[in-house]
Nucleic acid binder design. Sequence first.
RNA 1: GGGGGAUUAGCUCAGCUGGCUAGAGCAUUAGCUUUGCAAGCUAAGGGUCAUCGGUUCGACUCCGAUAUCCUCCA
Length: 791
Amino acid sequence: MFEMLGNWSFGNYFKQEAIQWSYEFLVTTLHLNPDRLYATVFEGDAKENVPKDEESFQLWSALLPASHILTGNKKDNFWEMGDTGPCGPCTEIHYDMRTDAERLITNGATLVNKDHPQVIEIWNNVFIQFNRLANGSLEPLPAKHVDTGMGLERLVRAIQGKSSNYDTDLFTPIIAEVERLTGIEYGKDEKTDIACRVLADHIRSIVFTIADGQLPSNTGAGYVIRRILRRAVRYAYSYLHYKEPILHNLVPILVMQFDELYPELTEQQAFITKVIWQEESSFLRTLESGLRKFGQIEDQLKTSGKTDIDGQSAFELYDTFGFPIDLTRLIAAEKGLTINETGFAQAMQEQKDRARQAAKIDTGDWVTVSASALAGEFVGYDTLQTVTQMVKYRQITQKGKTQYQIVLETTPFYAESGGQVGDKGFLYFGDDKIEVLDTKKENNLIVHFTNALPPDVTVPCHAVVNELLRHNTTLNHTATHLLHAALRQKLGTHVVQKGSLVNPDYLRFDFSHFAKVTDEELRAIEEQVNDKIRQNIRLQEMRNIPIKEAMNMGAMALFGEKYGDYVRVIVFDPDYSIELCGGTHVDATGKIGLCKITAETSIAAGVRRIEAITGSAAYQMVAQEWDQTRHLRHLLNNPKDLAAGIQNLLAENERLRKEIEHLHTEQAVQLKNNLKTKAVTLPNGINFLGEHLTGNLTADMVKKIAYDLKNEMPNLFLVLGATIDDKAHLTLMLADELVQNHQLNAGTLIRTLAKHIQGGGGGQPFYATAGGKHPQGIAAAIEEARLVVSG
RNA sequence: GGGGGAUUAGCUCAGCUGGCUAGAGCAUUAGCUUUGCAAGCUAAGGGUCAUCGGUUCGACUCCGAUAUCCUCCA
């Protein structure tokens, strides 16, 4: 994990400047020794039909001696984003940090890209100049770009002349704190040293990513944080023997280190600490349950006399219980056990293949219909339909389903962004009507998703947005702004947006706040929002104003969100709500009608979620609730206090339930006592009792009678018949002595008896039941039982 | 988005291949013990076994759907 420094150029400058400036920065500004610098350039690849990067080679030749310019293969010196898309050669800058004595013995050029710990790559300049098509061929890009990436830690190490990244002052304060907390001294033992470094390194990634607005989760970027955090906890757990949350204790050091450069850390310190603590704690719980599972696996091995944990079990531990595989290895080794690594790898591969199969998308090349400078211009703020022209389209296939992506010259369709979902609607090409299922942005291009293409893609296109859906979405978006402002007013300015969803049905707003929002606060917030709705505040929309100006107005921007130089500002009362926003809004707040908060929940440590509905949806809900309450009142004969009335009802119901249970028990006891007197002692000493019970009985009552009789009468052979729910029911209960001494088995016996009632049954040797559809046969069944035991 | 797993008393969890009248520890309450406390002993209360449906003579256990949570992969 390292911090990458760099900057992009989109057509502003290319190889000449990038290389020149790289050299200047390292040698003139940072005073690195040019004798120790090496550059690599792409050697070319005949198979791919890409030539050597001669241009970069020439440029470097003006700066470095030939012996310091090396060529590299496709793996090291060619960058690709994926199977298709932009790509190009790159040039790396390496730095030789060995001592002069060592440098005399071995030529540094032979150590570049050889994983030598002291000859390290510090900078990579990628020159994006090709576009790879689906058929594998390359075409030159009209505009060429530069993407530079420099490792901060390695650069600092080169400047400070340290032999390891971890000896630079980026890490030493954190490692010192780990030493203080764990009481383990750094530099004494390779194993604990590695653990200290892992902690120091990972905590930086975690803190910065959370400050950037990411939270640990089970998907996407959030999952990456979760994994990094867990790796750190695992190292502390198994090597530093620290079994409690530790990472959150390191936050203050980082905050101090970066206070000047990143005030965001200071501002969010409490929040970041809480999130980390929560995540650590929950992972430690996961580890605990994993250890339990491990114990079970261990027991099974012991009883079967094996010492090899099969791959499936190891994988289950990892996959289902989240127990890290290297921890399994470690613990297994401690207990003298081994893991079937092949089996584990295989199970892992199967899972990966499954996921890949499910996510596989086949993307075709764009087909250009008409060249247009306007491609994808959004006109949807002002109109919901327009006549335009298709610019290009392509076909994509996922899980056997084919869809099309269409780009128009101008479009009224809003593409999913800023939490607001994409528009739906129709595209009319002459008489052909194509449904737009969704609209998304791709590389700043508005892309319409459809299931079909028109027969003629060149005819003019009449693009029409679904007005009702857009209208409802718009209400929800404006309500979101009003809500955001209300939250900050009522709860405090620590409230920061952490996520937002705006669709036609409802709005969802996630924000940082430490406690549950109380019912009173929620009510106050809702009132505030509705107050602003009734004030019918007019929208002030400013398109394309410089970001500086917007910020001076006090507009709320999201940290971690990228904004262009020019932004759109949405204002509802300059003293109330000013936000940078690309979404669609009502022209006056009164149109929202009503906003009703429907839920307040927690979604992560320190993050709350509010859901709300507006407009007719809100009215419908209120009306329904009203009807329902009226109905309830009516049912209870209009009590003064509805809640109390229901509570009484519930209590009464519970009391009656218990009373019935009690009566059933009593009835059963009585029935049992009556039955006792009807038992006959047979010549062979068996106390036989066979009865056809009548009356209103439940299966549970019969069961209780049988068990009670067994406890009270020795040598009992009990057979009971009953009719329950119009079905015949037989119960057989045998004293333990009979089962043991007379080899009787209730389970097998009842199957014979069940024939009389045309049914089947079974059970244990001393107790069995049977059911059938012929109640008239019960007497015969009891009679047969008597014969069996008399026999 | 695709797998796997979990959901049983207030809490932490047992309950194997359907049938031992749903259990343990902690917590609660009462009694005993103790000068008092900590603790100990004895007993009691507390469960729609997540929800809904199905299979079966019989479902905590098997099957399906739903909900919530955990976890892995992308």
